[in-house]
Simulated assay, not measured.
Amino acid sequence: MLIRVKNLSKVYKNNNDEVYALKNINLEINSGEIFGIIGLSGAGKSTLIRCLNRLEEPTEGKISIDDIEITNLNKKDLRNIRSEIGMIFQHFNLLSSKNVYENIAFPLELEGKNKKEINERVETLLKYVDLEDKKLSYPSHLSGGQKQRVAIARALANNPKLLLSDEGTSALDPKTTKSILQLLNKIRKEFGLTIVLITHQMEVIKDICDRVAIIEDGEIIELDTVGKVFANPKTKTASEFVSNLKTNIEEEIKYEKKPGSKLVKLSFLGEISKKPIVSNMIKNFDIDVNILSGNINELMTTSIGNLTIEILGKDEEINRAIQWLTKENIRLEVI
């Protein structure tokens, strides 16, 4: 599903005051991509994703899904378009009085499917999310990861074209989060779904998303491919998200640099992350280099290398080396 959002705003009234949860949002989400929306608490990301299926009613602007403007639909037509949109939530939203089978079957029952159709579909989904042995269990007897798998199966019950995830992994531990993200990526590849997910975790964006929008105070402040945002964040908020990402690099390098040296953080995007940049720099200039820390992050479509080094030598040679790195399209920061 192709999604277009144009001039979208959402205003809440607080006594006589107007509070903007969203301000003039414009974006296009391509069919078949995994699109991430990241922001801090209160940034407006949940409001935005809930506007995409009109769980929240926009104050202004237009939302089109496959060229159908959903902001103008009546209740009947909105129900029809919602049947093609699945949604998963942070706290799963399972029916505690129903077992796993019944939770997955529930949306099919609402659509008036017969028992045979329901049984075939539920059994297929139980196998797909690897919960065949849990079909008669109740939510209270499931782990967080199992609950989210049930929620995903339920969201897929009516064969949607669009899947919305509202903080779908933030209640899970890191290992379980990885398994849920792998499942979502498998769903995208095998069913061709468009997936929109919101999160406050840059690790989630790194692992699964093609593109990302960063939202702050109800406005999109940065939107690009994940690789470009990682390699060259243009806003302070984006830089903080990238720098706070848990990697193999120590959060702060406690190192007392030597006189006549400079500490430099390097970032490499794509194939250049696998080239012997440091080795070539040492050969080209009269300098020495201490490698303090580094790693390579594998994104969905590319790689990002991070390296913190100490360059030793005469100021003139160090500056020439830094200029050379810049010409090699390596993002750097002198600490």
Rank of each mutant, 00 (worst) to 15 (best):
L183T: 10
D17H: 08
N329M: 13
T47D: 00
N248Q: 12
E167A: 09
L156N: 06
L8W: 12
K234N: 03
V150G: 01
L78Y: 03
E250D: 09
E60T: 15
I180K: 02
L78W: 07
R54G: 01
P58R: 09
E18K: 12
L162G: 06
N103F: 02
I195D: 02
K228V: 03
D315H: 14
K236H: 06
E120M: 05
K113N: 08
I29P: 07
I38C: 11
Q148G: 05
L126E: 10
K189F: 13
R331C: 02
F89A: 09
K115A: 11
K116R: 10
F92G: 10
E250K: 07
F268M: 11
L163K: 05
V242Q: 01
I187A: 05
S179H: 12
L162K: 04
Q148N: 06
S261M: 05
R154C: 12
N159H: 05
Y12W: 08
V129N: 00
H200I: 14
G260A: 10
R188D: 07
L163C: 09
K265I: 03
V100F: 01
L245R: 00
K236I: 03
T326H: 03
L307T: 13
T225H: 09
N159E: 08
K189R: 15
R320M: 15
S165L: 09
T235W: 05
A238M: 10
H200V: 15
K115R: 15
G270H: 06
A151D: 07
A155I: 06
Q182N: 15
N7W: 01
P107L: 01
L108D: 00
K186S: 03
G168D: 00
D130S: 03
D210V: 11
K206C: 01
G192L: 14
I37A: 08
G305E: 07
E57C: 01
Y101I: 03
M1F: 09
L312S: 12
L73D: 03
I215T: 12
I287K: 09
K161Q: 04
F285Q: 03
L142A: 05
L269H: 14
E251H: 09
Y138P: 06
M281G: 10
Y101S: 01
E317Q: 15
I3Q: 00
N14C: 07
K189C: 03
Y138H: 06
E251Q: 09
T59E: 07
P233S: 05
Q323G: 13
F89N: 08
S170E: 02
K189H: 11
D173F: 06
K178N: 06
T177S: 13
E84A: 03
S140V: 07
T176C: 11
